[in-house]
């Protein structure tokens, strides 16, 4: 992973599984299909002659423009997945994500309130899971998607053990 200017010095990022791109693409496909279905309703009605108002070019242009944007988003997914990384340090957990809008988040283990391991149907079929570390602050939730199931379990155990050692109230 290239060192971005926003990344802190001396952090060795662990990348998530490239298979996670497939999960994101599945989500993309569903979202795009629904959007296109809704947006093409005027087109169908216009072609069928039920509606007369939207000019034909507009009825075509809107879904096509949205489709083009969605294709750009699709092409970015592999790079976005490659930009996700996490690092375990002795006192805290770091996670980074984003290409255009980059974000690095660090949470000390002592602030951990609880850990989730979640997996949707596509992720489960690919043997992936997502680890979420929750703190008392809603905007300091660490989400690491696309972990192989074994790595997710290891991370969860590790976090729980480290959190236990440093766990305090609030």
């Amino acid at each position: 992973m290239p060192q971005e200017p926003v990344d802190p010095q001396g952090i060795a990022w662990t990348r998530v599984s490239p298979k996670y791109a497939a999960v994101r693409m599945a989500g993309w496909a569903v979202g795009t299909a629904v959007t296109l279905l809704v947006l093409s309703v005027p087109l169908v009605l216009r072609l069928a002659g039920i509606w007369t108002w939207p000019p034909l070019w507009l009825a075509w242009a809107v879904p096509l423009a949205v489709l083009a944007l969605d294709l750009v988003r699709l092409s970015l997914i592999p790079r976005q997945v490659r930009a996700i990384g996490y690092a375990e340090r002795s006192e805290d957990l770091l996670v980074r994500r984003g290409l255009l809008f980059q974000r690095v988040l660090v949470v000390p283990y002592g602030r951990m309130q609880y850990v989730d391991v979640a997996a949707g149907p596509v992720a489960r079929a690919l043997g992936l899971c997502e680890v979420r570390l929750h703190t008392a602050a809603a905007d300091a939730t660490i989400e690491i998607p696309g972990l192989p199931a074994a790595e997710g379990a290891r991370l969860r155990e590790n976090l729980t053990a480290r959190g236990q050692a440093r766990l305090a109230g609030l």
Binding site: P5, V6, P8, F101, Q102, V107, T135, A136, A137, D139
Partner: peptide
Amino acid sequence: TQGIALEQGPLARRFGVCDVRLATT
């Protein structure tokens, strides 16, 4: 401090700056 985040958008990257957000309840 519950957590710290560095955030940088494309415009901020051009100017070599970024935001530091401190997470609290």
